[in-house]
Design a protein around this nucleic acid. Sequence first.
DNA 1: AATGCTCTTGCGAATTATTTGCAATAAGAA
DNA 2: TTCTTATTGCAAATAATTCGCAAGAGCATT
Lengths: 144, 144
Amino acid sequence: MSDAESPLIDDLEHELRAEGVRITRQRVAILSALANSGDHPSAEEILERSRKQDSSVSLATVYRTLSILVDRGTVLRNEFDGTGARFELANKPHHDHLIDVDTGDVIEFTSPRIEELQAEIARELGYDIVDHRLELYGKLRTRD
Amino acid sequence: MSDAESPLIDDLEHELRAEGVRITRQRVAILSALANSGDHPSAEEILERSRKQDSSVSLATVYRTLSILVDRGTVLRNEFDGTGARFELANKPHHDHLIDVDTGDVIEFTSPRIEELQAEIARELGYDIVDHRLELYGKLRTRD
DNA sequence: AATGCTCTTGCGAATTATTTGCAATAAGAA
DNA sequence: TTCTTATTGCAAATAATTCGCAAGAGCATT
Ligand SMILES: [Mn+2]
Ligand SMILES: [Mn+2]
Ligand SMILES: [Zn+2]
Ligand SMILES: [Zn+2]
């Protein structure tokens, strides 16, 4: 039972180190928590998950680390309706979200057409898009 | 120099009264502030603006009144990046927003195509859209 | 116009999510 | 191992919004 980390985390560590960011136990735990999350955890959830690997992690460090990772573009911060930011690793292609208003489930989707239209609209208004947020809030269609 | 209110505010007052909502000086001041705002003011800004008409308005009442109006669908609450919610009367057709990241300016736009595509995407995923949020963050294109 | 029931208000305290100051601790270069 | 300095945990500070409560004010009724 070695302590080998996933290649993903290994890569991230190297990138961070290359930028002079120290690799601490806490940061590795937080990165692991994110890497092993298929969902969109809140800071509190990331705290819980990373504590399974390093019980010394504190909430302040979770926030500080997320802040660094978001600034680097390693992590995405989402602010869905309701409360608190939700995070995810930025290692997958761009996508937007559909939130199930009944269950809170978050479904990812992509629409090249919408992305194009957004750029077009911005262009017509004289702008270049630097970021955007598209969230659909829906209810599961029932076949009554 | 009469005290006549705009027909818009007059209508809103009647609707509210019909629902058993009492028309107070503060509420009229807040509604006026909203009706006279072409932009997307924050709660603090609405406080300042409504105080010009009724200096007794408090921030708690601004929030409480906005809450009622949002629940009724009279007012829309936007949560753009940065801090604090921004409000606007819901008396115009649906639109989304482009935020100038340099100046903070908020530009409104509509795209029937994007609206359609959103519904289509949700449908494919088995959902009916109950709400959505589309915000573009952009920089004014310069012709250097 | 006066009455009274009930909603609404202002104020300050409470909440929630996130940030920050600071002394103790630990990365990583030498 | 030593040394420098970034990082950490903790608690206190912020920022936006909500809440409890006693005082005040709509408005239906007389
Ligand atoms: Mn996602
Ligand atoms: Mn608008
Ligand atoms: Zn997108
Ligand atoms: Zn829209």
